[in-house]
Amino acid sequence: MAELSAYLHLPFSAMGVLLTEMLTAELVQARAPIVRKARTDRSLLEAVMNGLQRL
């Protein structure tokens, strides 16, 4: 969403309204992000650490 609003030069909030409309009309798909759980998944953190090390 941030990416879209930057490319389209639209305010973030306007993008939100537009995307919500588009979601309702099934024009776009939303994928659920990883949510921070009570305990963060250790394997995820380890994967991120490994990835950062390769930068």
Partner: peptide, 9 residues
Amino acid sequence: ISITEQLVL
């Protein structure tokens, strides 16, 4: 940042 082919940060 792409962490793996499946995971992005």
